[in-house]
Design a protein around this nucleic acid. Sequence first.
DNA 1: TCTGGGGTCCTAGGACCC
DNA 2: TCTGGGGTCCTAGGACCC
Length: 387
Amino acid sequence: MSQRFIAHLDMDAFYASVELLRYPELRGRPVVIGGRRRSVQDAAAGTVFPTLRDYTGRGVITTATYEARAFGVNSGMGLMKAAKLAPDALLLPADFDEYRRYSRMFKDAVRAVAPHIEDRGIDEIYIDLTNLVMLETAGKALDPWVRARDIAVNIQQMVHETTGLSCSIGVTPNKLLSKIASEFDKPAGITILRDSDTVTRVWPLAVRKINGIGPKANARLETLGIHTVGDLAKTDPSLLIEQFGKSYGAWMYEAAHGRDERAVTTYSEPKSISRETTFENDLHPVADRDQLTQIFTDLCIKLAGDLQRKGYAGKTIGLKLRFDNFKTITRDHTIDAPTQDAAMIRRAAGACLKRVPLDRRIRLLGVRVGSLSRPGDISTVRAPALF
DNA sequence: TCTGGGGTCCTAGGACCC
DNA sequence: TCTGGGGTCCTAGGACCC
């Protein structure tokens, strides 16, 4: 593949930073976003912000300001645990509508500069800068990587001007490396990595830094004595394939060498849409039956609403249960024709539930619709038989 | 006092059809 | 009566990501 210039843009402490625009008086203080399990302190609203110390519930941190991270708290950590580390950090409930509004704003700002964007969730995107760089360096004696940096600076400025928020950008020959590079100089940094930088800049990193190597794979690599990306790159690929399977093992080896051919894709159809909820307290399948039934039906109604609003119907209905011991089970049921109707979804999910042995308290209940199509889409409607 | 909610992709076995 | 290989769909679970 010919030379590409791919950027990864990551908003800095996104949710927390949006909240700081709203409450500038909190700037400089440790703040975490999370929870939304109504606690006593919610009642004492107004100008007084609750601290982590007063939290009770099962929420986790979605974002922490850099001041809060200094205490060792981080995304995904239980709020109760975080309270031990940073009892005086302020706790703000998440306001996803507001974050989505800012998400659209920053993406539109980027699009005005560089339209080839891939959405990677609410606070990050990939941008293919190849055409822009080529256009501006064609026939000139300019270093294209210097141009790529200029464009990144420009994007960063546009994002800040339109949203008041800062972001970090990595620019490299592919998505894999850019994702790593955007973290190098956070917050508000820009990092350029050429192919030749892989050995010096990427190989010293922990394998866990590779997007796609999670806690499980990391632990197994550790036991093999593979700690850094460089270790991984020097491992016999046949060993990796033996340990992790043909596809994952081979991918790991390629990733360690900084090789990644994936394109920046501007649009992809959703595969499934779901709703789930974790209860305030674990519910007993018999003693709390009425309450469970109510929540179950409610999830189906909300899910049907999501499908209708987004214009999708689906024929595979899925049920998800998580028990008090955190064991999670799923059951699927495929119906004859795609639906976006709450009662149909409820019935199919109810059929799934009948196949689950209910001998423990339940912590989470979820409903999912997959095998999506757009209703009215001619390709999804069965053509009548000719004979 | 552990561990949210919304997703994607992969694997693997069995059914079923050709 | 026995045997085979390929393709697709369905289901369950798990790893991983934001």
